[in-house]
Design a protein around this nucleic acid. Structure first.
Lengths: 176, 176
DNA sequence: GATGATCGTTGCTTGGGGCAACCAAGTGGT
DNA sequence: ACCACTTGGTTGCCCCAAGCAACGATCATC
């Protein structure tokens, strides 16, 4: 019942085919193994996600709370943008975004100007200070990541990036 | 200042070598690109992490709150274990673990028996009901992942699993 | 046997996030 | 032109996850 021992061992994909999988499934049994492994590792990463991103953020800028970083990155990427789009992109309600944006505005990192084409909407953009802070934070985070991934060959780093990006874009199409 | 346009485009790793990287860095400029990409994608994933895991968890078992799943997985993997080890593994304080374990015990999913070798410690183990619930939840999550990754070739799924695992084990050695 | 460290629990606080209610501003129907 | 409906944003209230600190209980050591 427990697949304990085979859980965390294999650093690379192993064959291990005729195991305990019912052969009735149309796919090859290794496919099940692969999905299982992704699910397992993803569960770990997500469970640790808060601690991890907090660890990244705390050492960077104590003043800039961890959640804000993601917002700044996105605003920088595609400004000017409305807060609704930001909320949809990050999969959180507009309420949450509104509150966090208020903080960022009070800190002088972003500006909210009324949309000339839609009286209801506000257009978000980074201020000069926001650009500077984001740049610093990004550099610091990349530095941490660099030391973390120091042992990896460059090709693997690039592959990891590609995998994460593909996975992220994959979840793009499911908002409800 | 903004690398906006090149941000989310490439679905796979691209060469792109002689770009805008200053050649003064000892590493190849693509390396910087790769780290940058990892940092960016990781930021997105971590920012969405709560919404994502909530989405996974909510559809599985409304009664079993999302955070509990990670605990059950780990207890299943290496029971009997003490709650301190669980806290260290998940990078959270003992207080958090204690509270969540209390809920799980009240739900009858785990058992906390006193450690015969250490009067202070409790040994955690899944109950029969816990095993059943975990198995169901795991199956459901794998199903969701399966539909999500349906378009990926099996080899890529296996690579993603390997990457995530290597990354997770990488963060193993930094607890402070 | 007294001191100190460790394991677990609980109280207090903080922060992120959802839900619902609300206002303001567009949009459409008649 | 007027009313209803929709959409963008804000705020209030609540819940959950997590940290910190304090505490009782139990080793471990001298």
């Amino acid at each position: 019942m427990r697949e304990t021992e085979t859980a965390l061992r294999p650093p690379t994909a192993e064959k291990h085919e005729g195991h305990e999988g019912r052969q009735s499934v149309p796919e090859a049994p290794q496919a099940h193994e692969a999905y299982c492994a992704v699910e397992r590792q993803l569960a770990i990463l997500l469970r640790r996600s808060q601690a991890f991103s907090a660890g990244m953020g705390r050492k960077v800028h104590p003043e800039l709370d961890p959640g804000a970083y993601g917002l700044l990155v996105r605003i920088d990427q595609s400004s000017p943008m409305r807060s609704s789009d930001l909320a949809a992109y990050l999969r959180v309600g507009r309420a949450t975004i509104s509150r966090q944006l208020k903080v960022l505005e009070e800190l002088g990192l972003i500006s909210r100007s009324p949309d000339p084409e839609d009286g209801r909407a506000h257009l978000l953009a980074l201020t000069e200070e926001g650009h500077r802070r984001l740049h610093d934070a990004r550099a610091a985070r990349q530095g941490q990541l660099r030391t973390l991934l120091a042992a990896w060959p460059e090709e693997d780093v690039r592959q990891l990036a590609g995998m994460l990006e593909r996975f992220n874009t994959l979840t793009e199409g499911m908002h409800p």
